[in-house]
Design a binder for these strands. Structure first.
Lengths: 219, 219
DNA sequence: AGGGCCGGATGTACACTGTACGGGCATCGG
DNA sequence: CCGATGCCCGTACAGTGTACATCCGGCCCT
């Protein structure tokens, strides 16, 4: 009831993000969102065509939180590093909403700010258009994948007793892992990985690869 | 009606996959699945605790389709290449179900077969446990991210008129892209990328990085 | 000032979802 | 022959997204 502020596309997305932060992405229903805004679910449809559109709006919101460093006097590598780490930080802070940042590309100016910053840095470093596009794609792929792994505790569930929901065929760790000896051997090393370290490892690996591009002379 | 075959965890997962292939992941409902199996929705709960468990089962199913090359006489790079390309091919063939392959790690022996093959190849090439875990993670991250990008036509929607579902604030391409000049410049290059080529580019980049690990002597 | 209008907000209704619960069934061990 | 034990299914319930019709409040035009 206190929420009698005027309804706004922005405000709706913010409140939706709050709800997702608390209850997860499936916990967001139009009715709950309407209630949280002090109205009903149908009011939202004045500003968004769909529930999907609301989700896309939430994605824009969190993407706009990513740092967009001005590249004055910064090595292009450093600019990319800052963007990537900031992206990761933002998605971890809104971990429940992270799938949205993966699914919906940045489209609004605010959400595109960090992309612009990255592109500009690469351009100043002498990358041609195609190399920039390529690098963007590789970096996006890497961060998406990293998030996907870090989210559901990928390796945690992987190490758990297999086939969690299946009622039959629970494979006994001891006996059946002898059909997959190497998997059994490596599992512990997977479990004890540190997310941040591994993220850095892969990121630097990619940056090194890019450096070779520029060394080879761009196009 | 013709479907009076005995109900089975496997058969349920297969039929669910078929339904997802046709109608997408949201098009799968327990009722439709039951009907397709010749029974009702509730019968499924004898074999799976949840709808989620069914989805995890579908994931195992498609993961088990990935090639698991025997590494006899193959360079480890070639083994990894085959696995990665096969993984990509399988996920593209079941493009609607691909998010499941990302969300649920392989747990059943069949689904783990390709992981075992990859691990074995790396081990024979002299990678220690930690390096194998690292490489697995990096490769998984890359393929997940690649899929995420290739799935929803990431760059296609990115290039489309912005904020598709929002009723207000459609940003006019010409005028507002002057606030994001570099983005505007690069967009065409993004649009004309070829998925397979870019996948190969990134994959080879990663493999080269791994080679440096082994050259440096493993640990 | 009065009347028309129109866009934002909402109430109701419908088709559909996942699944808890309780009963029916056939098969098998005693 | 009698239980009993899995498999199967029918019903019921709470909750979902949203189409559609309605309402209300402020603006413009005459």
């Amino acid at each position: 009831m206190p929420e009698r502020e005027k309804l706004t596309e922005r405000r709706i997305a913010e409140e939706a993000l709050g709800l997702i932060d608390e209850d997860g992405i499936d916990g967001l229903s139009m009715r709950k969102l309407g209630q949280r805004l002090g109205t009903t679910s149908m009011s939202i449809y004045t500003y968004f065509t769909d529930k999907e559109a609301v989700l896309a709006g939430v994605a824009q919101l969190i993407l706009s939180e990513v740092d967009a460093p001005s590249d004055e006097g910064l090595d292009w590598r450093e600019v990319v590093r800052r963007i990537m780490w900031s992206y990761r930080e933002v998605c971890h802070r809104h971990i429940n909403a992270a799938p949205l940042a993966i699914k919906y590309p940045p489209t609004t100016p605010d959400a595109l700010a960090f992309v612009e910053a990255g592109f500009r840095a690469l351009r100043r470093a002498g990358f041609d258009d195609q190399s920039i596009a390529r690098s963007y794609r590789a970096l996006a792929a890497y961060s998406f994948g990293t998030l996907a792994i870090e989210m559901n505790g990928y390796y945690a569930t992987a190490s758990a007793a297999a086939a969690p929901g299946a009622r039959r065929e629970t494979l006994h760790a001891a006996t059946l892992d002898k059909h997959l000896p190497t998997v059994a051997e490596i599992r512990p090393s997977l479990a004890e990985q540190h997310d941040a370290e591994e993220f850095e490892y892969g990121l630097e690996l990619i940056l090194t690869g890019f450096a070779d591009i520029t060394a080879a002379g761009g196009s």
